[in-house]
């Protein structure tokens, strides 16, 4: 390790600062007392649906369609999650079912 202890703590401090900035800035820029601009209110309503889409893609970002298992275990398991959720609509069941399906596939099949 090339850094001194103080340098390590400063580096960790910077990561803390960066994370806190991304979390607190919207609340500081648009405080409760003042009227939030209509455009930001609009974004607050339409962004979540898009963000959940982004998060799904983010989780799958390292899946390669052209190498390894070609994303087949991921596709089968996501289909299992969707199927279970349409059928029973029990969050825990859908999540657990899909995860077990994925673990079995990557450990024993692919």
């Amino acid at each position: 390790m090339t850094m001194t202890f103080t340098q390590q703590m400063i580096t960790i401090g910077m990561v803390v600062l960066g994370t806190m900035l991304t979390r607190f800035v919207p609340f500081i820029v648009f405080p409760a007392g003042k009227d939030t601009p209509k455009y930001i209110q609009y974004l607050g309503k339409v962004l979540p649906a898009a963000v959940f889409g982004l998060l799904v893609v983010y989780c799958l970002k390292n899946v390669s369609l052209f190498a390894g298992s070609h994303g087949i275990p991921e596709m089968i398991s996501i289909a299992a999650v969707i199927g279970l959720h349409l059928w029973k609509r029990q969050m825990l069941l859908s999540i657990a079912g899909g995860t077990v399906c994925y673990m079995l596939l990557v450990q024993f099949v692919f």
């Binding site: 998060l55 799904v56 275990p73 999650v81 959720h85 859908s94 079995l104 450990q107």
Partner: peptide, 14 residues
């Protein structure tokens, strides 16, 4: 494969 639990959760939330 246990880390798939996060993907499954975001699919359900979506």
């Amino acid at each position: 494969g246990l880390d798939f639990v996060m993907t499954a959760m975001f699919v359900v939330i979506f």
